[in-house]
Nucleic acid binder design. Sequence first.
DNA 1: GCGATTCGTTGACCTGGATCAATGCGCGGC
DNA 2: GCCGCGCATTGATCCAGGTCAACGAATCGC
Lengths: 245, 245
Amino acid sequence: MSAQLARPHILDPHGALDPCATCEARPVSVCNAIADTDLGRLAAIAVVTETEPGQCFIDEGEPANSFFNITAGTAKLFKLLPDGRRQITGFVGAGHFLGLAVSDTYAFSAEAIERVRFCRFQRSKLRMLLDDFPLMEKRLLEVAANELVAAQEQMLLLGRKTARERLASFLLLQSRQGMPCGHSRRRFSLPMTRSDIADYLGLTIETVSRTLTKLRSEGLIDVVSQAEIIVRNPSGLEGLAGGLC
Amino acid sequence: MSAQLARPHILDPHGALDPCATCEARPVSVCNAIADTDLGRLAAIAVVTETEPGQCFIDEGEPANSFFNITAGTAKLFKLLPDGRRQITGFVGAGHFLGLAVSDTYAFSAEAIERVRFCRFQRSKLRMLLDDFPLMEKRLLEVAANELVAAQEQMLLLGRKTARERLASFLLLQSRQGMPCGHSRRRFSLPMTRSDIADYLGLTIETVSRTLTKLRSEGLIDVVSQAEIIVRNPSGLEGLAGGLC
DNA sequence: GCGATTCGTTGACCTGGATCAATGCGCGGC
DNA sequence: GCCGCGCATTGATCCAGGTCAACGAATCGC
């Protein structure tokens, strides 16, 4: 079972890159480089797991024993302050890698938003894995570099943008989610709650709600249902978001 | 000349890791793996350059032709909004790599704070470089993973911490700058201006100034001169900073 | 069908940090 | 020595977004 599962998930050149953050990324096909005989060995040390929405599968501060590759669903990554304030550092979907960092404890928590499926590897075997599959290492480096760019963009948002600008940036990001480079959807749905959006944008749920209402009243977007958005004026939103992403 | 220059900078296992963000990082010695004969080849494609303080050596949006390895001095990395608002995403010193991302334009600007020296490589040769020196790739991956952790910490700061907490976190980070894991200095100097600190912490210079004054009046720190800080009460500061870093 | 619960919206009010403005303080040039 | 300039500090005021509170609107268990 595992070999069939492993190929499309770990090795799919499309899954692992966030197309929004990496418009110029040229996905490297890792697929072709791994022989089928090796796939068995790879699969032998991977454990495929599924989680229910709301379930935490990585806990900040716990020993970082595993390395994850998400294969389906969406999860949120977050950090907490002692008093419970939360910052969501990202939403991750199929193809993302978690637990890369050289540290013996996890630096963040991860919780499933939708039902999430992932491959889990023992971190102690990661070194070996990378030595055996050098193209996987190249892949990880690309992914990490692109996440770094996205993180810098998010710091700009959190440090310097107004609530309006944050929501505009966020909606554009979501409209490009899972789309090929340079493309976006006019209509899309948000898998996360207002509270998640607020904690991602460094705002409160009230401000998120009010700002969405305002953007709608100005004709920039439509909020069809709680989770369903239509972008009515993409260039207007882009002007608000400031710059590219 | 270049071989002698290249060895300590590109290959020094200590320089490239930010000790604060990566307390648990076990630096991998890349040194030992590269033969001296190879060093010549490596040096042949590197250009060593120096910049004056205030000089911009990377411009956001420009074609990303080069890949940099800082070998001395401190620089600030930042992103700008169209109206001039600025977010400094990090201060980088000796050992840091810049221009890793898979993108054909730079995602941020870099400006020297102190006199900065760096090695510059053509990005078009990066692939070749990494193929020839696989350990360098491992190294880059480690560095990138650790920067990602630091970036998440900074997102928590920007999204959820108060001005007081931001300053406390910042001062602790600076007190650990360049120190081995788990160590810090009581007394240290800040190479950057208040304006840089403000743009790094998502505040204004006035708030930075006022908050430092407040922390001093409470006996947590001493501001000996503009650029010189003494931490009087480390655990008090840590309590404020919330959590580890 | 109907409480109970959770999530989202809206309004009234408050406050932390921004903004605006004045002043202090090195430091380099001459 | 003194002027000019850039950086830092301090005070007064303002406002974007937070907080508190009330109220809809889906969803679920029974």
